[in-house]
Amino acid sequence: MKNWKLAPKSESVAKYVECYWFLEKEPDDHGNLYPKLNPDPAAHLIIASDNEVHQYDHSGTRQVVQGCHWIFPHLKTLTMDHSDPFKIIGIKFRVGALYSLNLPDLISILDKVEPVAIMRMFGSDLGSAEQLVDSAFEQRDSLCATLDDALSVYLSKALEDKHSELVRNILPILSDTPIAEIGEKLHRSQRTIERAFTRVTGLTMKQVHCMVRLEDMLNYLYELNDAELNWADIARKYEFSDQPHLIRHLKNSIGNTPAAYAQQRDLTIDVYGNFELN
Results as ranks from 00 to 15, higher is better:
Lys2Thr: 08
Asn3Gly: 13
Ala7Trp: 06
Lys9Ser: 13
Ser12Ile: 09
Val17Phe: 01
Cys19Thr: 07
Asp29Arg: 05
His30Ser: 12
Leu37Asp: 04
Pro39Tyr: 04
Ala43Asn: 05
His44Tyr: 12
Asn51Ile: 08
Gln55Lys: 13
Tyr56Ser: 13
His58Thr: 10
Ser59Val: 09
Thr61Val: 15
Thr61Glu: 14
Val64Gly: 06
Val65Thr: 06
His69Asn: 11
Leu75Cys: 09
Thr79Leu: 06
Thr79Ser: 09
Asp81Tyr: 04
Ser83Asp: 08
Ser83Glu: 11
Pro85Val: 06
Lys92Asp: 04
Phe93Val: 06
Arg94Lys: 15
Gly96His: 04
Leu98Asp: 00
Ser100Phe: 02
Leu103Ala: 09
Leu106Asp: 09
Leu110Met: 12
Val116Lys: 02
Gly123Phe: 03
Gly123Arg: 04
Leu126Gln: 00
Ser128Asn: 07
Gln131Gly: 13
Leu132Ser: 03
Val133Leu: 08
Ser135Gly: 11
Ser135His: 15
Phe137Pro: 02
Gln139Glu: 15
Arg140Gln: 13
Cys144Arg: 00
Leu147Cys: 02
Leu151Thr: 03
Ser152Tyr: 04
Ser152Gly: 08
Ala158His: 03
Leu159Pro: 03
Asp161Ile: 02
Glu165Arg: 10
Leu166Trp: 02
Val167Asp: 00
Ile170Arg: 00
Ile173Gln: 12
Asp176Ala: 13
Glu181Asn: 13
Glu181Met: 11
Arg188Val: 07
Arg188Gln: 13
Gln190Gly: 08
Ile193Met: 06
Phe197Trp: 01
Phe197Met: 02
Arg199Glu: 15
Leu203Ile: 11
Cys210Ile: 06
Leu214Ala: 02
Met217Gly: 01
Tyr222Ala: 14
Leu224Cys: 07
Leu224Lys: 13
Asn225Phe: 07
Ala227Tyr: 06
Trp231Asn: 02
Ala232Val: 14
Ile234Lys: 01
Ala235Glu: 05
Arg236Leu: 13
Arg236Tyr: 09
Glu239Trp: 00
Phe240Thr: 01
Gln243Cys: 04
Ile247Glu: 14
Asn252Val: 10
Asn252Cys: 08
Gly255Lys: 05
Asn256Gln: 15
Asn256Phe: 15
Ala259Tyr: 12
Tyr261Leu: 15
Ala262Pro: 05
Gln264Lys: 14
Leu267Phe: 04
Ile269Pro: 01
Tyr272Lys: 02
Asn274Tyr: 06
Glu276Asp: 12
Asn278Gly: 12
Asn278Leu: 14
